[in-house]
Nucleic acid binder design. Structure first.
Lengths: 220, 220
DNA sequence: CGTCCTAGGTGACTAAATCACATACCTGCC
DNA sequence: GGCAGGTATGTGATTTAGTCACCTAGGACG
């Protein structure tokens, strides 16, 4: 395949020309529509995935039907969870779903192994990705175990709103982000609205007074 | 150092003699008393640690002073978190503390890198350890986000009790295991006692009727 | 215009966390 | 033995979160 994509991964751009050629020759470009399940319990992971464009949401589902978003993989990152599935006998009960149309590069396992053997740069790339995911997971644990829902919700709203303070999300979707129940989100949103911090419409939130949200989000 | 220890790591025993020699020549045996901080936010991690004996408890501490145990590293496992610290610019707010006297092998970073380059077996060993830790963290997220405290407490008690059904732990220690508050643990323990499932003494729990606990622990 | 589906609202209740103390138990020391 | 000080545990009151059951509102579409 054509090799321009490799420039999107600064760490890979430092590989030797021969190593870059190895990747670009053996890797396959894949295009996935939004809503595709990239990995899930029971599905075998065959490739090391490098995301060029789009985002993959990784979340955990409980037996009781509740869900929580663990992290997102975006362009320029690799999807380690699939790699980890290759190596662990334990099955994860996490799943990865494309949130947008996704363009990615699939590196076959044998090529992945060869690059791990040949290139210190490649190893650094893979490890730093692992480390980032572990950091993400530690962050989720910290939030879920120790932080108040209203604070976490305020943080989410600020993080996901666009420049005009708008975001499209149902209460249910926000609940999954935080790993809580829809009613809990609805009640807090309503309270925020009562305080004049935001306006609510079906599937839409518009931030009116960021300062209040920011104070709550930043509260120790 | 003397090379017998390597036999405790089945994956490493499959390395070639030359690779095994590389490790045993360069690695250092370290002995740590119980209660030593192995890694913590801010501390630089210099070595790849392989545990021979003892256990290291890895836990997260919140700003509010609450804590939660994430997982334990025991003999035959490596302490990936320290390695990950080497590779991630993000600082973890997790810490590792020896729970017992610990005997470990410290592999210098350069030797670690060399082995990663030379040995597919070594890579498999490192990756499978990473995967196990990620699995552990996913498990913690699932428990904290979705499971009831009484069920989790029952599971902990069953898991930590010895053959006679005894375990030494304060309510506070159990609370840290679960990432909750001491009062919550005290009240549930008291209720378990009321049901005749266990007997309580200062710093001690004795399981009297495992069946009740088991039913609660296994409840969907 | 009615039907159906999804989004959101709400009251009642249970579970968990927090706060503020009150006791109980143990160890060392007189 | 008795007392002091530290650690462990008990408990009520209150707030916050999660659950359950059910309701209403907004759209899409025939």
């Amino acid at each position: 395949m054509s090799p321009e994509w490799i420039a999107r991964f600064p760490e890979l751009a430092r590989l030797t020309p021969a190593e870059q050629q190895l990747i670009t020759e053996r890797a396959q470009l894949v295009e996935l529509p939004a809503g595709t399940t990239v990995f899930a319990p029971g599905l075998p992971a065959e490739n090391f995935l490098l995301l060029l464009d789009g985002t993959v949401r990784v979340q955990q589902v409980s037996s009781g039907g509740r869900e929580i978003v663990l992290y997102r993989v975006t362009g320029g990152e690799s999807c380690i969870m699939t790699t980890a599935c290759l190596l662990s006998q334990d099955t994860y009960n996490a799943e990865g779903i494309t949130e947008t149309p996704v363009q990615a590069v699939a590196v076959p396992r044998a090529t992945f192994d060869e690059l791990m053997a040949r290139s210190a740069e490649f190893r650094r790339f893979v490890f730093s990705d692992y480390s980032s995911r572990i950091t993400d997971l530690l962050h989720v644990v910290e939030e879920v175990a120790f932080e108040r829902i209203d604070k976490r919700l305020a943080q989410k709203l600020l993080a996901r709103a666009d420049a005009e303070g708008r975001l499209s999300a149902t209460h249910q979707e926000l609940a999954v982000e935080l790993g809580t129940a829809r009613e809990v989100v609805s009640r807090h949103l309503k309270e925020f609205q009562r305080r004049g911090w935001l306006e609510l419409n079906r599937g839409q939130v518009r931030l009116a007074e960021r300062t209040g949200l920011e104070r709550l989000a930043g509260a120790a």
